[in-house]
Design a protein around this nucleic acid. Structure first.
Lengths: 363, 363
DNA sequence: TTGAAAGCGTTACCAG
DNA sequence: CTGGTAACGCTTTCAA
């Protein structure tokens, strides 16, 4: 049908120069209103769309945000959260004029290689990283390359001088919420089914439970007694629940680090209250009360951080901008007059979202 | 670091012309082996990557496959299945040199609008559509536009003359598999928990169960008696299971159209065998026997069909190729000599994958 | 087989 | 604000 309408067609139709059309598109405020309207009308009439490929050649910006899609795990429960994240990311990105480009990688090394490939070929403007862990090589690499990125997940164990922007959910606040809920219901001996120490996320969630218990007057010894650690999984949850419930001084309620463990605890058969984490379909299916992460908001924060980074960053990696500045501590001209504005060392943005408790029959 | 190495750099390094480099990349067989090796060495040494943007300007091909990411919901394609699909698609696409571009849309109209937007701006080479339903307007539109696409899901209710390529899983075979498994275990009265009629997927799965039962000698009346229909959901499954089990002549085993319904049936408390559909994490968690769809293979088929379509289709939508031919019935030159080979009306490819039964405690 | 030139649609830079 | 020109990196056409 419409045979690829170019900017020249629009210019002809609106009786202006190509440059003016470009201006209307990129910096509308510089064009007189009358002209601008005429051009916009022509754009509408002709159904003009900027060719991303051509634009990218000039500006070096692809309007692409790359994100890894993780394989659905065997426990799969995490997959649900990830799915919501990806959907939210795609939606928020679209609102800001960006699209999400997917890639896979089996491990960190493969992902580093994919970075090179992607950056060479499709040249995404930014990355969103998920499942960051201790000493994650990916952030270091992107920092070196000067490619804007955010992580969904805090930089566990990263030294303060090597900071980067991140978005996360306050897991400790979530378990604290759950614990306080049980405390309010009259429980005192509230056990915690958690993962083995060493996982940032798991330790964080345990800390929230421990804090709430301590706030309620529990001593360190009692807390240690109620703290059970095991690998993730339903059978593991069942076994762990038995251990805590059948103890000399049994737990009367349980907070769990995941819905998998919580489901196992539920299957242990005792009728004590159980609260899970992530509000997965499983939870909904079996009526499990669970802590819900505001994933859509997380995704939106990721995008808005990236957009701010990309807009404040006029360089344009591809064509013109030869020099590549570091992302952190980049210049930020505040629009002051002629003289150079003083450099401002803006700290990377960090957003911590608060989870909520979804109450169902299990507690 | 490496300041955007171009094809000219490679040419200089290998002491050949730019053109020769381009040839090595695009049609290696046309260049002498010695030269080719030297060029490839230079590519390696310099870490050259073709710029997709530049290539796209000339060829009109973006090497992008667009797919909608559905919001994680309980209905429609199960979130878990969808996740595996997307992951498989990304992986297969990467192997073929393509990347997956995500988009969202709340309904069909919004999706049609997104088609225009996407095709105007990022110009994906093809689409993969999921969750196709009766009278789906999306396939019609893409057919009109002449954009290559495949659907994951058969064209339910589409007239034969308006065919397009699709990939699907044989749901009827899956439920038949499950039913025969129960028959072999000695069961005769095997109930089916299905969705209300009118959904292609649901009807298909019911048909497989009914066929297996009929093959085993059950009469139409008995089959109707054992056929229970309800909306998807765990509570619905529980209620439906009760209805079938507490009937005058009770069912002694159940085949279900989804894991949700199966989970409900399990919760109904009777200890009769239950088989679900989709092998979701829930199934694994509670030990539910379930029919598993070979999603990775589905995704791979989607990609290979698209690749075949795109490679056989030399046009290149963007720059050069003005005319846009219809996808269906396109020319396919079989490499015969000088004279024009006869037009061959190649029927769109259609692949039906077979599911498997994952046995667990529930049956 | 190889080399030179043109052109894809944009944006950036210039003088008017 | 307009118009002209250059450039981005690549593929294609045409000559050598």
């Amino acid at each position: 049908m419409a045979d690829k309408v170019t900017i020249a067609d629009v210019a002809r139709h609106a009786k202006v120069s190509r440059q003016t059309v470009s201006n209307v598109l990129n910096s509308p405020e510089v064009v007189r209103e009358e002209t601008r309207l005429r051009v916009q009308e022509a754009v509408q009439a002709l159904g003009y769309r900027v060719s991303q490929a051509a634009r990218q050649m000039r500006t070096g910006r692809s309007m692409l945000i790359a994100s890894r899609i993780e394989p659905a795990q065997d426990d799969g429960i995490n997959g649900f959260v990830f799915d919501r994240y990806l959907h939210g990311l795609t939606e928020s990105a679209a609102r800001a004029g960006y699209r999400v480009l997917l890639y896979t990688a089996d491990d960190h090394d493969a992902e580093l290689a994919t970075f090179d490939d992607l950056l060479g070929v499709h040249e995404p403007d930014a990355f969103v990283l998920t499942s960051t862990d201790y000493g994650d090589p990916r952030t270091t690499r992107l920092l070196e390359l000067g490619i804007p990125f955010v992580t969904f997940g805090r930089p566990w164990g990263v030294p303060p001088e090597r900071r980067y922007p991140w978005v996360d959910v306050d897991g400790a606040a979530g378990t604290a919420l759950a614990t306080r809920y049980l405390l309010d219901a009259g429980h005192r001996r509230i056990g915690f089914l958690g993962w083995p120490g060493g996982s940032g996320v798991g330790d964080d969630r345990r800390a929230g439970w421990a804090r709430a218990l301590a706030d309620a007057g529990a001593g360190p010894a009692e807390i240690a007694e109620l703290d059970h650690r095991t690998d993730d999984g339903v059978p593991q949850g069942e076994a762990a629940a038995h251990a805590l419930i059948d103890a000399g001084r049994p737990a009367t309620a349980l907070v769990c680090v995941s819905d998998s463990l919580a489901l196992g605890a539920l299957q242990a058969g005792r009728r004590i209250p159980v609260i899970g984490f992530d509000d997965t379909p499983v939870a909904r299916a079996v009526g499990l009360t669970s802590v819900r992460q505001p994933i859509t908001e997380v995704a939106a924060s990721c995008v808005s951080i990236l957009v701010r980074l990309l807009d404040g960053d006029a360089r344009g990696r591809g064509a013109a901008g030869r020099e590549r500045e570091q992302n952190v501590g980049g210049r930020q001209d505040a629009g002051s007059g002629g003289s150079a504005s003083p450099l401002r060392e803006a700290p990377p943005e960090q957003v911590l979202h608060q989870p909520t408790l979804v109450r169902r029959q299990s507690a």
